[in-house]
Nucleic acid binder design. Structure first.
Lengths: 346, 346
DNA sequence: ATGCAAATTGACACCGGTGTCAATTTGCAT
DNA sequence: ATGCAAATTGACACCGGTGTCAATTTGCAT
């Protein structure tokens, strides 16, 4: 491993290594001739800065990590994809850390993880985004973080989607199809998005001057199994709801499975839809109607914000309102799991 | 960040920092009294070795990375889970790197990734496991790696599953159900597991003295879409196969979707099964029969082998033949997507 | 008690970078 | 040409560890 060091470059260029350091860090106060000369040697020798040397000297590793314990694997997968895309472009490594939100020693485990890797930037996925004791520890250790979908979205250290609007649009769509008995499967009570989505659901009814049937709102936990359980409850009711909106696709898939198990035809007898647009939506039959959340974009954005924060670079000028607020809108994707209720169709 | 350094410990314990270094590295030639004294101070002060300092001095980061470009997200997810479990126990960080196998600059990109992170251990997921130019580069850079499911499985630097046996068992199961027209969807031609699984499929027929209907063997690529495409071909044939075995679950799910689209009842009119046992198998309806591969165990094992290799530790004594050979067996999981062909029932 | 090999320990340089501060050079007004 | 502030550069110490090798201590046979 005969890698080229800053000393090699300095010797070749006939300058001190501090000057080389200045050049590779784009510092001011280096004459143009010196900079050109050093750059030429750097390119000629194929020099690359050793990130460990820098990390040690600066006491900042510039490594970032993704901390996740999310009940929807498809969501995480897309988020991870966006984050990795950004890391790749920015020449950063991404550490992965799987955790169990409910573990009592979680904060200590994460602190140990940070000590072991010296990651100095973190991306927090719900429900970690609002875990106050975790945030306190990170602040104490001066570890930067960006949160996905926390309580006070849009405050500069977070990225998220407009859950109110998304759920409202989806519900309005079902109302437009003239569904009357629309059920709703709530998200996990510990996740803020859950509340936003519920608000949106209720808003759609309120906008039409309609009232929500509270008996058709059941608790879910964003997991596939919780979708099955919620559907078991809902599909036993008389009269049965004609449409079920789940707070995420993972649960919507569970609802669909339960409908199949009971021999209920989708969408003829029951419309089902979710939120997120994870890959699972097009792997079940029929494909699920959903609100497409730009998950990968959100991941990319979170990583970019974090990396720029660590490097002390400002974010590029926001061109869209979404980039301005870091709150992204969803898009209605109509697939095969929704239709008008049967009694209204010919 | 007032972290305790090796110098602090040395001063407190009244020894040189080299002696502290000896203690934390468990070197011989430290007197018991000295070791105890230093350990006491280490515990008292809460000293933790700075991995960056060590990495720089030893020229080995002990960081490992997972390189993946696998067509089955559910497979990757489970593999990743096992790897992370091991990393967590061993107090190691795991870098993630997503790549596109077909990208012409892939080897250079990976080299750059390694330079940026200084990972000195890699886990290679198929189809990367057998990419010779990649392996050459890693050998040149003296980067350790463990491969998942490569050509010459069981050679000490790889972990895998017994694909021949798995496919043979699954096919035998279908034959026992008295299916005659059994179709097979091949895996990706670039992945060695694909060949092993095909061998197993053929072996099951040979074991019974039966011959394979070559027209019912179609190419797949381990992706969901390729499963749909293969099913479209197979289900148009007259007579239609009564069972389809796909080389992985991702494709089996695609086959199931296509069957649904054509109104073909599963398992009454068509049995479908796959290999892997990813979470998708229990999210589609009906749940898919499969051969359960201990994916997380394989991931865990790969990570452990890699970490021990990097630390210069020997692997623990193998207790099972699987741990001995690092080739794991699958288990038949019968779910709802398979049954005897209709003409034989009742 | 003495001599000698083995065990234990520490001084020092080094891994590959950066920060501080002083020394040197440059550019401009006089 | 001279003086002075600003720009440029380098010497040196340091980040937190480890490797080498010599110095010191220990344990045992004589």
């Amino acid at each position: 491993m005969s890698s080229v060091t800053i000393n090699d470059v300095a010797r070749f260029a006939g300058v001190s290594k501090k000057t080389v350091s200045r050049v590779i860090n784009n510092e001011i106060n280096v004459s143009v001739e010196t900079r050109d000369k050093v750059m030429a040697v750097i390119n000629q020798l194929g020099f690359k800065r050793n990130p460990l040397g820098m990390a040690l000297a600066k006491n900042r590793s510039l490594f970032i990590a993704l901390l996740a314990d999310n009940p929807s694997p498809g969501y995480l997968q897309k988020l991870q994809k966006g984050i990795l895309q950004c890391c790749s472009e920015e020449h950063m490594g991404l550490f992965l850390y799987d955790c169990r939100y409910r573990s009592p020693g979680l904060v200590n485990e994460i602190e140990e993880f940070i000590d072991n890797t010296l990651a100095d930037g973190l991306i927090l996925v719900p429900p970690l985004s609002d875990k106050q004791d975790l945030l306190d520890m990170l602040d104490r250790k001066k570890v930067c973080y960006i949160r996905i979908g926390p309580k006070n979205q849009g405050c500069g250290d977070s990225v998220g989607f407009n859950g109110v609007k998304a759920a409202c649009e989806m519900t309005s769509y079902l109302l437009r199809l003239r569904h009357k008995e629309i059920a709703f499967v709530l998200g996990h009570p510990d996740q803020e998005s859950s509340r936003r989505v519920e608000t949106g659901f209720r808003k759609a009814f309120a906008d039409q001057g309609l009232s929500v049937n509270e008996a058709l709102i059941v608790q879910g936990y964003y997991t596939y199994q919780s979708g099955i359980d919620a559907a078991a409850t809902l599909l036993s009711k008389v009269p049965r709801p004609t449409a079920i909106l789940a707070a995420n696709d993972e649960m919507a898939a569970g609802v669909l499975y339960e409908a199949h198990s009971r021999g209920i035809k989708v969408p003829e007898e029951l419309s089902i839809c979710g939120i997120d647009d994870i890959s699972l939506t097009t792997k079940v039959w029929p494909n699920l109607t959903t609100m497409r959340q730009p998950i990968a974009t959100i991941g990319y954005r979170a990583a970019l914000m974090l990396i720029n924060k660590l490097k002390g670079k400002p974010m590029p000028e926001a061109v869209t309102p979404e980039d301005q607020s870091n709150i992204y809108d969803c898009e209605l994707i109509v697939r095969d799991s929704t239709s008008a209720p049967t009694n209204l169709r010919t």
